[in-house]
Simulated assay, not measured.
Amino acid sequence: MASTQKNKVNPKDKVSYHHGDLYSSLLKIATKMLNEQGINSLSLRKIAENVGVSRTAAYHHFKDKNDLLCAIAAQGFNQWQKHAEKIFTDDSLSKEQQYRDFVYGYIHFATNNPNLYDLMFGRTIWKDHGSNETLRHAAFPSFDFQVKMTKHWQQMALLPSSESSLRLAQVIWGTLHGIAKLMIDGIYTDNSSVDEMCECAVNLFLSTAQSSSHS
């Protein structure tokens, strides 16, 4: 009985829906369960029960659990890209502040949504070709946008122009991903340490660009 209760979503949190938006309702509840209880809490049966529909109805929208996980992860990539675009198009910010906000924004997105972040970049859906078209159509453009930002910042002499935009974007992402995972996995729990690492990452790439321009 205790385990059944643990996987229940509060009735107040159930999503009302009309014909045509059951997909969104299922996805919203699934994301909430992932964030609060982890990936092991997810099953189409439990999600359908919490929304208030039959399991058969859920299977009309997601063919299996992997399909559901890919949809949740895709939503995460879309959410992050919207945040990155907001930073990138904010003309009130200097280019340096844009880059700094991008770095801090990435880390905060990851640490505020640890279960979602782990799903987005974990082996659960990427290993053994588990990703589907829905996920790839969200994940790849998200990284392409980061390459676009990197190229622009290189043109503004903010980042080293001597490096490939693609490789530099990958190195920056790898650096931020590493910091995020250190925090999510509990290696670092002091927020001030994470902020100092973020600032170090910002200064490292900016100083590299300045050194390159003076050489």
Score class of each variant (00 low, 15 high):
residue 151 K to L: 14
residue 140 F to E: 13
residue 166 L to H: 14
residue 174 G to H: 05
residue 71 A to D: 06
residue 72 I to S: 09
residue 105 G to Q: 04
residue 75 Q to L: 08
residue 77 F to A: 04
residue 165 S to E: 08
residue 162 S to C: 02
residue 124 T to F: 07
residue 86 K to Y: 03
residue 103 V to D: 00
residue 111 T to A: 07
residue 82 K to H: 03
residue 117 Y to V: 12
residue 106 Y to S: 05
residue 171 V to Q: 10
residue 75 Q to M: 10
residue 156 M to W: 12
residue 113 N to M: 12
residue 123 R to G: 03
residue 157 A to D: 15
residue 134 T to R: 14
residue 132 N to E: 09
residue 166 L to K: 09
residue 125 I to V: 12
residue 123 R to Q: 09
residue 121 F to A: 03
residue 151 K to F: 08
residue 173 W to H: 11
residue 84 A to S: 01
residue 149 M to R: 07
residue 148 K to M: 15
residue 82 K to G: 01
residue 112 N to V: 02
residue 164 S to G: 04
residue 139 A to F: 10
residue 119 L to C: 11
residue 146 Q to Y: 05
residue 114 P to E: 10
residue 74 A to Q: 02
residue 113 N to V: 10
residue 101 D to M: 09
residue 98 Q to Y: 08
residue 65 K to Q: 09
residue 158 L to Y: 14
residue 67 D to P: 01
residue 176 L to G: 03
residue 161 S to E: 06
residue 115 N to Y: 11
residue 77 F to D: 00
residue 97 Q to D: 14
residue 171 V to A: 14
residue 73 A to P: 00
residue 69 L to F: 11
residue 168 L to A: 09
residue 90 D to W: 02
residue 70 C to V: 01
residue 131 S to E: 14
residue 93 L to M: 15
residue 65 K to C: 04
residue 151 K to G: 03
residue 97 Q to L: 14
residue 157 A to P: 00
residue 106 Y to G: 02
residue 84 A to P: 00
residue 168 L to H: 05
residue 96 E to A: 12
residue 152 H to R: 15
residue 66 N to L: 09
residue 99 Y to Q: 04
residue 84 A to K: 01
residue 102 F to C: 00
residue 67 D to I: 08
residue 75 Q to D: 10
residue 120 M to I: 12
residue 174 G to W: 05
residue 111 T to E: 11
residue 135 L to G: 05
residue 142 S to A: 14
residue 136 R to W: 13
residue 102 F to I: 03
residue 164 S to A: 07
residue 128 D to I: 08
residue 79 Q to M: 03
